[in-house]
Design a protein around this nucleic acid. Structure first.
Lengths: 235, 235
DNA sequence: ACATGCATTTCGCAT
DNA sequence: ATGCGAAGTGCATGT
């Protein structure tokens, strides 16, 4: 029995079913009219409405509305979930420490409650990431510029790790910052930081190349002012 | 009737129910054994396993495993969802443009399918954001430093908008970067960018103060090297 | 549409 | 645990 659903359970029945689901390390979903109170890094209140609430066996809590990709409220993995009854209504509580955060979901009505047994062993295979792009550049360093030769990846500096540090045709140190998508001022600033840090550290002149599919005007200005360059590379 | 659930529907029945739910602008959830193929900004493949799939009336698609807050695959709001049958199995497809992205969820078995009618008008009331922190600082500018006087918020520069620009006791221009949590090199670099941009623009000496609850060592070094300062402010 | 930065970012990896 | 940056980041806001 992989899935059990109860329609319109009363508060006590709902609480018992949720508690059992949590104990069984099942995935529990609730659809109902509820209020949500959150307090932790920030605080929020969400008045009554119909939402989908998901309790995962790893301690994740999600409260989803009918819109948006991001849950309106949530609790991260590792949180402790409990179900209780107040005034005959189901209350789902999630708490965690470091930082201390708490959510209470108080149901006026539970329209539907499901408990699912999850078996899922497969790993996600993802490609097209920045790490993939780096492999490509290490394979074909001339994508950065003719004569470029990579020396180190994830080169640690005082202020963070540079993607690739290498040497140009003329023997100068070059810092390469890679992005898989269009870059803005943040990426340009990042490159500038690494170039400055390496220049101080090595007491040499250091070049910087931002490698990405495209660049915004603001980022371009920042590169120009810092004497850095941009190299287009399709993802 | 707010919620309808079908247990172990066959492919054709499941497809019909999903299509009806989409047409009714309902929220549809599926729990079943499925494979997921994604292609768009990146590409991914997820082998067979039990997952919770959520179709929202706004065109959002979520594929959740039994772990993590973030869906293993998803499609953002505005995507077009369709249900079809291949080899007697339900296939849920979601497509969107700009950028072109597509997900196919192919079910081996649907253990449970629910269709929910969502009524939800309330707005989330959230506090403890950076905007709230800014209000506090504008009310009590001495939290930044004695004699500080704010002149402008979201002051546009060549390379982005500075949180607060004001004047210090001695009449010098001061850029304030506010953060509601511990700051690292990124925030310090951001402040450095705005200070440099304003100094170029006004051709004056410009000070910079990073205001946050705490700071990492790397960020502190970066501030020191740029001649910028840190001011502790609890959130 | 693009630019820019916040986010209860989350997440993974390294120290 | 903290530091740091990537993410298919999402999302709001302004232009």
């Amino acid at each position: 029995m992989k899935a059990r659903t109860v329609e319109r359970p009363g508060g006590p029945d709902a609480a018992a079913a949720v508690a059992a689901g949590i104990a069984d390390e099942a995935l529990v979903t609730l659809f109902g009219r509820c209020e949500v109170v959150y307090d932790g890094r920030a605080s929020s209140y969400l008045g009554p409405g119909d939402r989908l609430v998901v309790l995962k066996p790893d301690g994740t809590l999600l409260v989803h509305r009918g819109e948006q990709r991001t849950p309106v409220n949530w609790q991260p993995p590792g949180s402790a979930h409990t179900a209780s009854v107040h005034d005959d209504c189901l209350v789902v509580t999630s708490e965690r420490e470091t930082p201390t955060e708490r959510i209470d979901v108080t149901f006026e009505t539970v329209y539907s409650l499901s408990v699912f047994d999850v078996e899922d062993e497969e790993a996600l295979e993802l490609s097209g990431t920045e790490a993939d792009l780096r492999e490509r550049v290490l394979d074909e360093p001339e994508l950065v510029e003719p004569g470029f030769s990579p020396d180190e990846t994830e080169r640690a500096t005082d202020v963070g790790a540079a993607d690739i540090v290498g040497t140009d045709e003329a023997g100068r140190t070059v810092v390469v910052e890679l992005k898989r998508r269009r870059v803005g001022p943040t990426a340009a600033g990042q490159l500038a930081r690494y170039v400055d840090a390496l220049a101080r550290e090595t007491d040499e002149d250091v070049r910087g190349i931002l490698v990405a599919p495209s660049i915004t005007d603001g980022a371009r200005r920042l590169l120009d002012e810092e004497g850095l360059t941009f190299q287009r590379l399709e993802p």
